[in-house]
Nucleic acid binder design. Structure first.
Lengths: 131, 131
DNA sequence: GTTTCATGTAACTTCGTTTATTACAAATAA
DNA sequence: TTATTTGTAATAAACGAAGTTACATGAAAC
């Protein structure tokens, strides 16, 4: 999307992502609410990036998408009655929090611009390999 | 379990854990394969801890249970064709690996003995509160 | 203005994974 | 020999994520 001047339709994006136009709209809608993309209807409509690629980080995308749970394991219950569960939570809560902080900090250090640059490099390599 | 001299049945454990005896057997079976618990059949049978509580860590439990995925987000595909996916993976793989290492190191520092001690402390507090 | 194209969104279906359940064989102690 | 308990296969249920259908709304082209 970053390399296109014109908007891309949900249909086109869905093909790129091997998914469904409605799923694209749902997801892009969240990014629009965060001011990262914009949508336009009708002829020549679709989705375009409006934010500064240097300023948008993966962390912002994570937030925009509703901060989905990072961990697949861990606390089932924040304030359990069960004392065993309380003990386990007490030891692990900090560990999970620290790991989450580490990860989110890394996310914050990746801009869309950096990804675009890396992508361009990979595309160039692939072109060379084809010749 | 640590505070009991005799084995506990899957039935009893299932009630404690709000789950099903068969689920308990499946899970405890993995812990048995790792040498952490033992099972006995028939009258007065059930499950008991056989490992040294000072030596068993949460990391060992994690391994014994088949190292379930820690992260709910991240790589769908380790070697994607898609260049965008490759770029994203390249930046995030290390971040996820570092977060995983951090977490597993923390797990390794928690022994069952420490949990038992913490549990005992909490149980004492609860008893005092009841009086 | 009417047609075409595209998003917005609600409602529903499908899919995959995890968990729960049923059923019964095998083993063990009373 | 009976009561009890694990071992395990097979099946069902529950859940969440993703996909699909349907149609209303808005915008550009003719």
């Amino acid at each position: 999307m970053a390399e296109r001047g014109e908007p891309m339709t949900s249909e086109t994006l869905a093909q790129c992502l091997c998914t469904n136009p409605v799923v694209v709209r749902r997801t892009m809608g969240l990014l629009r609410e965060a001011g990262i993309v914009a949508s336009s209807r009708g002829h020549a409509g679709g989705w375009a990036i409006v934010a500064d690629l240097e300023k948008v980080t993966l962390r912002q995308l994570h937030e925009a998408l509703g901060e989905p749970a990072i961990f697949a394991i861990g606390n089932r219950n924040e304030t359990p009655e069960c004392l065993v569960e309380q003990s386990v939570n007490a030891v692990l809560d900090k560990a999970f929090a620290d790991a989450e902080t580490l990860l989110l900090d890394r996310f914050a250090n990746v801009t869309l611009a950096a990804l675009v640059a890396d992508f361009a490099r990979r595309a160039a390599v692939r072109r060379l390999q084809k010749d």
